[in-house]
Simulated assay, not measured.
Amino acid sequence: MATVNLLRKKGRPELGNGDVKRDLLNAAMQLLSSEGREGATMRAICAAAGVTPPTLYHYYGDLEGLHKAAIDETYLGVAEAYHGGTEEKGPLKGIRDGWATFLEFAHSEPNMCRIVIQQIMAGKPPSMVMETLQGLAEDLNEFHAQGVLKYNPKDTAQLLWMSALGALTYAVSKDSVALEGSEEPSLQKALLEITLDALFEH
């Protein structure tokens, strides 16, 4: 789970462009990615965005609200990769694109990736997760009707999600658990193919 830069470094506005709400969001995303939650404090975010704490409260309610908005924005890249691939060549293309984007995220933004995983483990996943899984299940209905799914669409979507989370967690913890000499990108690709083989009839 075409890869999309999850933090949109090329496409998103730079700080100081006059969009204060977006400046706060960008500052939070940058600091969460580089410093983690501990470094993405209200003081640091407001300083980076060039505003005062009341402005943050005005737009996001509190620091937790801004952190959640930053995490939600980050996850949008995965959702966009899935939907873009699906519109181009169907659900399997979307699954592969979303998987690839997830893993690119893990390697390029490990701190932010860990925060997303923590949110999911705490039962507070990014707001787009449920919508993406529901959309995936609906897209898989066509395969179900053709008799090529081994499980119903909803369960298939959940199993894909579980496998993707496992791959993501492994990727961000690889320094402590990876076997010497292992080819991680090849292993991650193999895991996706094993997962698809387990879920789809041939």
Rank of each mutant, 00 (worst) to 15 (best):
G135Y: 00
I115Y: 13
P126C: 12
S127P: 00
S163N: 14
E88S: 13
E138M: 06
P126R: 04
E87F: 06
L140F: 04
L136T: 06
F105N: 12
P153K: 03
Q119P: 02
E80I: 01
G123V: 11
G135P: 00
A106E: 03
L92H: 11
K89Q: 09
E142T: 09
F102Q: 08
A145N: 03
L140D: 01
A100V: 04
S108C: 08
A81T: 01
Q158I: 14
P153Q: 06
G85T: 06
A137Q: 03
I95D: 05
V78G: 05
G94S: 09
E87A: 12
Y151C: 02
I120G: 08
P110G: 08
M130T: 06
D139G: 05
A79C: 06
L76E: 03
R114K: 15
K93C: 12
F102A: 10
I95V: 15
G123C: 13
A81D: 06
E109H: 15
T132Q: 02
F102T: 15
S127L: 10
E88N: 00
V148M: 11
E142R: 10
E131Q: 06
A100R: 15
E87Y: 03
E88H: 12
L103C: 07
C113F: 10
K154H: 05
H83E: 03
P126M: 09
H107P: 00
E80P: 00
N141L: 08
E104A: 14
Y151R: 04
H107Q: 12
M128N: 02
E104S: 11
H83R: 02
E104M: 13
A100P: 03
D139N: 14
V148I: 15
I117P: 06
M162L: 15
I120L: 13
Q134N: 04
V129T: 08
Q118R: 15
V78R: 01
G84W: 04
M128C: 04
Y82M: 03
M128H: 08
D97E: 15
P110Q: 12
L159K: 15
N152I: 01
N111C: 07
I117W: 10
G94D: 06
A157V: 03
E80K: 04
D97R: 12
A145D: 10
A122N: 04
P110H: 01
G77R: 00
H83G: 00
G135Q: 00
F143D: 10
L136R: 02
R96D: 10
G85Q: 07
Q119L: 07
P153V: 01
L159M: 15
L92T: 10
M130V: 01
P125K: 05
P126A: 11
R114E: 14
A106G: 02
G123E: 14
T132V: 02
V148D: 02
L133Y: 00
M121H: 11
F105T: 10
E142D: 13
F143G: 06
Y151H: 13
M128L: 11
Y75V: 05
Q158W: 13
Q119I: 04
A106T: 01
V116C: 12
A122V: 06
Q134D: 04
W161Q: 09
V148R: 12
